[in-house]
Amino acid sequence: MINHTIKVLLAEDHSLVRSSLQEILQTNSKYEIIASVASSEEALSALQNSIIVPELCILDIQMPDMDGIECTKAIRELYPQMKIILLTAFDHDTYMEEGAIARINGYLLKDMNVESFYRSVDMVMEGQFVAPLKLINNISSRLTQLRELEKNTTINDLSKLLSKHSSSLDDKELEIVRLIWQGWSNRMIAEDLYITEGTVKNYVSRMYRKLSINTRSELLQILAVKQE
Rank of each mutant, 00 (worst) to 15 (best):
I139M: 10
D171K: 05
T199Q: 13
E173M: 07
W181N: 10
C57R: 00
I139L: 14
M66F: 04
L86D: 05
N202A: 11
Q81A: 14
L78W: 07
D65K: 06
L108I: 10
S120G: 01
S120H: 08
V114Y: 11
Y79A: 07
K160S: 15
T154K: 02
W181G: 04
G99C: 05
D91R: 00
S159H: 06
L162W: 03
K73F: 10
N138V: 12
L146Q: 00
D122G: 07
T144K: 14
N202K: 12
P80W: 02
M63F: 04
L174R: 04
M63C: 03
Y95H: 11
R119N: 15
I75T: 10
D157F: 00
M112Q: 09
K160I: 13
D111E: 14
V121L: 15
S167A: 10
D93H: 15
K164P: 07
R119P: 00
L158A: 00
S120I: 00
D60V: 10
W184F: 12
I136Y: 00
D122S: 13
V130P: 02
I180R: 01
L109C: 03
G183N: 04
E126P: 04
S159T: 04
N152T: 14
E115R: 12
I69S: 11
L135R: 03
Y194R: 14
F117S: 08
N202D: 13
V114T: 15
L133F: 08
A89N: 10
I61R: 06
L59D: 05
F129H: 02
E126T: 06
Y107K: 03
K160D: 12
G183L: 02
N113R: 11
I195F: 03
R142Q: 14
K201E: 15
L146G: 02
Y107P: 02
A89G: 06
R147W: 01
E175Y: 02
C71V: 04
A100H: 12
S167V: 08
Q62A: 10
V124Q: 09
Y194A: 13
T88H: 02
G99W: 06
S167W: 00
L78M: 15
D171F: 05
L158P: 02
R178I: 03
G183R: 00
V130M: 09
L86A: 05
Y118P: 04
N186S: 13
A131R: 03
I101D: 09
L86N: 08
A100S: 10
L193E: 02
N105C: 11
L146D: 00
H165D: 13
M66Q: 12
C71E: 11
R119M: 11
L161K: 12
V121P: 05
L78A: 12
L193I: 03
